[in-house]
């Protein structure tokens, strides 16, 4: 098969690493070769972070380059705007419609761009969710990333049951049910 390229972008601390680990798990279980590339260290401290996931029969480079992503999963809308040009023609842009101010906005030096979602919809196939709100309904704001992953899963070819199986394996036992519920919230919203 042709190599599939997925990117996960967000703000350091939002849990991109957990999401990529679940993704890596399901891809491996399906028998594909997978390479993932992550950012550790300084950039994790509230900075803009990117994770690349590539899978197929044989994968060489571990990064997704500009104009190549089949799916871009953005945990924050300004980050969706920052990286949307990595999508290939017709790629899916999955966005958590949340705003996190960069420090220049907090201190009033810069404006947070208005109408990001509307602008993105002009050029891309956008699938959005207010995952933070949905997570709060489940009683834990931290699971928003798994909700977003659920929505993104609609654009991949793995069955629902497989996803739930992998989540069970990748998260601590006491949080497994919550994370599975969160996944389904995102998954069902994308139908």
């Amino acid at each position: 098969m042709v190599t599939k390229n997925i990117m996960i972008v967000g703000v350091g601390g939002q849990g991109t690493l957990l999401t990529s680990r679940i993704l890596g798990g399901i891809i491996t279980d399906a028998g594909y070769m997978v390479k993932l590339s992550e950012v550790h260290g300084m950039a994790q401290r509230g900075g803009s972070v990117v994770t690349f996931v590539r899978y197929g029969d044989n994968v060489a480079e571990p990064i997704v380059e500009e104009g190549q992503a089949d799916i871009l999963i953005a945990f924050e809308r300004l980050e969706a705007l920052r990286y949307c040009h990595f999508l290939k023609e017709g790629g899916a842009l999955v966005v958590n419609d949340q705003r996190i101010n960069p420090i220049s906005v907090v201190t009033g030096q810069r404006q947070y761009p208005e109408h990001i979602m509307e602008d993105l919809e002009k050029d891309y196939r956008v699938f959005q969710i207010k995952a933070q709100e949905e997570a709060l309904k489940l009683g834990n704001s931290k699971v928003f990333n798994v909700i977003v992953l659920g929505l993104a899963a609609q654009h991949m070819d793995f069955p629902k049951e497989k996803w739930l199986e992998v989540i069970e394996k990748k998260v601590p036992a006491k949080l497994a049910d919550l994370n599975k519920k969160a996944f389904l919230v995102g998954y069902e919203s994308g139908k």
Partner: peptide, 16 residues
């Protein structure tokens, strides 16, 4: 490589 990054968006450097 014909891509068009969004222009003039606030950077997001790491912070405390």
């Amino acid at each position: 490589i014909d891509v068009h990054p969004a222009e003039d968006i606030p950077p997001r450097p790491p912070i405390l």
